[in-house]
Amino acid sequence: MSDILVYDGSFDGFLTVVFEVFESKLQQPKIEPAYRASATFFSETREIQTDFIKSKRVWDGIIKKGNSNIKRIIYKSFLSEKVGVENILLDYICKFFADNTAVFGNFTDPSVLKLSKIVKSVEREKHRMDAFIRFKLTKDNIYFATIEPDFNVLPLISKHFEDRYADQQWIIYDLKRNKGLYYNLNIVENITLELKPEALKTKGTDVLFTQEELAYEELWKNYFKSTNIESRKNMVLHVKHMPKRYWKYLSEKQL
C-alpha cells in the first residue's frame, strides 16, 4: 500500500510536500494536486497543508546548493501541470540533494531528460504567448488580451509585458485557469474577473472596445495579407510555426 499525498496545486504546496517526504522519510509516495486527486481503494490519501516556512526551507536549500538553471528546471516544469510531473520532480530533487553535480546536464538520467523536455515545452509555450497575445484597447483605456495556454505560463510572461508596456494599462487573462494579470501603470497585480470571460470573446458588435480598435485590427489584417509573397506559399511551414490551436488568438487569422 502506497501513500498518495494531495496538495493544493500551488508551487509552495508542492515544496511543502517535498519537505514532508524528506522529514518523514516517505518511500515513493504518489503526489497529486487537489484538482486532480483520485482516491483509489488500495492507497491512503493524505492531505498536505501548504506551509510557507517549510516550502521556503526547501527552496532555499535548492538555491544554496544549485544554480539558476536548477531553479529554472524545477519551477518551470512544475508549471507544466503535467500529470505525474510532481513525482519526476521529487526524484530529481532527491538526486540533486544527494549529489548536486549528478543531475546538471546528465541527460543519461531519465528524470533529467524528461524534465529538460518538459521545460522546453513550457518555455516554448511562454514564447508563444509573448508572440501571439493580441491586445485590444477597451473603452476604459486598458489593453486587454485573453489566453488559454497549455501550461500555467502566466507567472512567466509577467515581466516581459511589464518591461515592454510600461506606459499603458493592460490585462492578460487566462480563461482556462480563470485568473489574470493587471498592470496598473505601477505594478502587476493578480486578478480574477467577475464577469463572464466569454463575453470578452465576442467581436464586431463589441460594446467593450473602441471603434478605432476595430480599424487598427483591420489595418493589421491588411498588412498581414500584403506582406505575404504568393509565389512562395508554403502552408506546411506556416502551420508548423503557428499551430492551428493558436489561431484563435490571432486577429490576422480571423476572416
Binding site: F132, N228, V236, L237, E252
Partner: peptide, 22 residues
C-alpha cells in the same frame, strides 16, 4: 517607463502563409 523594450531576443509575432516570420 516609456513604450517598448528590445533587449530580449527577437520575437516572431506571426507568420505569413509563405512561412516567414513577421
Amino acid at each position: 517607463k516609456g513604450l517598448g523594450d528590445s533587449s530580449g531576443m527577437g520575437i516572431c509575432h506571426t507568420y505569413t502563409e509563405d512561412g516567414r516570420c513577421v
